[in-house]
Design a protein around this nucleic acid. Structure first.
Length: 363
DNA sequence: AAACCGTGGGG
DNA sequence: TCCCCAAGGTT
């Protein structure tokens, strides 16, 4: 190791923090460096809630959900007192719905222990919905612990700085070790957020803005002229297609027939219109004869929705239907529909049958 | 440990 | 249009 390498990592961390002080993003859940310097402390509840929402989810998508949640449930105790269904409804559209189920389970646990979050990585890691990343993020941001926070941004920044040829996810161990050597003891939370801000705004996956980067003199990948090649990742498997049919039954007063999905698995605990099973592509027309009950079904259209590991083609049928809801089903009136726990794929299906039905009305 | 689990935006 | 992927966790 060359002599100057000995100070490389601390120097990088110092430059990154200097950049963060001047260029950090203002985010609803963030306590900025100036406020921290004045002695203000982040609210662990807000840090936790934001970190759960931000798992595999963009900052822009999270903002409105975060504001709605903290407005309605300002504390972990308030969230613990909420009904499961209300939380699922409020989470609808954000995706990865097990996060909402774990959110409630975690709030219940924390509330039952005096409403105080654990202040160590290990303690946080034991809570539902909190894995290695989230435990480190909360420990460093909310409790000033020198934890190594490694998310997708950090993996990209580090793999470029050190031009790591090992593909992800195999390189995770190596990356974590490097981050552990860089975390400054005095500002671990800011260091974590600075690395993530750099990855989100400068060291982006494509066309990184290296000319604006505070670490351009430190970056092995930039020196080699190929930062965009990192991180190296394994090729992804092909996405299969499944097919099925969705049935939008409409009562004379405009109510739509709905039911609740099972507690676990895809879209668990969320609300749906009746559908057939979603089977592997059959290369054929799904017949209205597969409807859960007989009616004058007419074809309203077709939607395609891409999930994480498969694409779904749904034939959408529409029919009038009178009488009480069949077992396991319920009617949702027009003014209630927008507030139901409908995942995006189900809103698409309903919109295909009844344009505008799931949009929230004004007033 | 490989599979499963949503969604929307950017290039 | 299509592909990538975002402050990952659970089983």
């Amino acid at each position: 190791m060359a002599p100057q390498d000995k100070s490389r990592k601390p120097a990088i961390a110092a430059r990154l923090l200097e950049w963060y002080d001047a260029h950090h993003r203002e985010l609803p859940w963030r306590t900025g460096p100036a406020a921290l310097a004045k002695g203000e402390r982040p609210d662990p509840y807000r840090v936790w809630l934001s970190e759960i929402m931000l798992q595999q989810t963009t900052v822009e998508a999270v903002k409105s959900y975060f504001n709605a949640f903290v407005g309605r449930w300002p504390s972990v105790s308030a969230l613990a007192a909420a009904a499961n269904d209300d939380i699922m409804k409020a989470w609808a559209g954000l995706g990865y719905y097990s996060r909402a189920r774990n959110l409630k389970a975690c709030a219940d646990l924390v509330a039952s222990r005096g409403a105080a979050f654990p202040d160590t990585e290990e303690g946080l890691r034991a809570l539902p919905g909190i894995g290695p990343y989230t435990a480190a993020a909360i420990a460093s941001i909310a409790f000033d612990r020198p934890a190594a926070v490694v998310d997708g941004n950090v993996e990209r920044v580090i793999s470029r700085l050190f031009r790591i040829e090992t593909p992800l996810p195999q390189a995770k161990t190596e990356i974590r070790a490097l981050v552990e050597q860089m975390v400054p003891a005095d500002r671990p939370g800011d260091f974590a957020q600075a690395t993530m801000d750099l990855g989100a705004t400068i060291c982006t996956p494509r066309r990184p803005k290296c000319m604006l980067c505070p670490l351009r003199e430190d970056c092995d990948a930039l020196a080699a002229g190929d930062p965009e090649l990192y991180p190296v990742k394994l090729a992804k498997p092909e996405k299969p297609t499944r097919q099925g049919a969705a049935f939008v039954a409409i009562r004379a007063d405009g109510a739509v027939l709905l039911r609740k999905r099972p507690e676990k698995g895809l879209l668990g605990c969320m609300t749906e219109v009746p559908t057939t099973a979603w089977t592997a592509r059959q290369n054929g027309e799904t017949s209205a004869a597969a409807a859960p009950f007989p009616s004058q079904w007419e074809r309203a259209g077709q939607i395609t929705h891409v999930f994480t590991h498969f694409a779904l083609e749904l034939a959408v049928y529409r029919a009038g239907f009178q009488g009480s809801a069949p077992a396991g089903h319920f009617w949702s009136l027009p003014h209630e529909l927008a507030g139901e726990a409908l995942p995006t794929v189900m809103k698409k299906a309903i919109e295909t049958a009844i344009p505008g039905a799931t949009k929230r009305k004004k007033g």
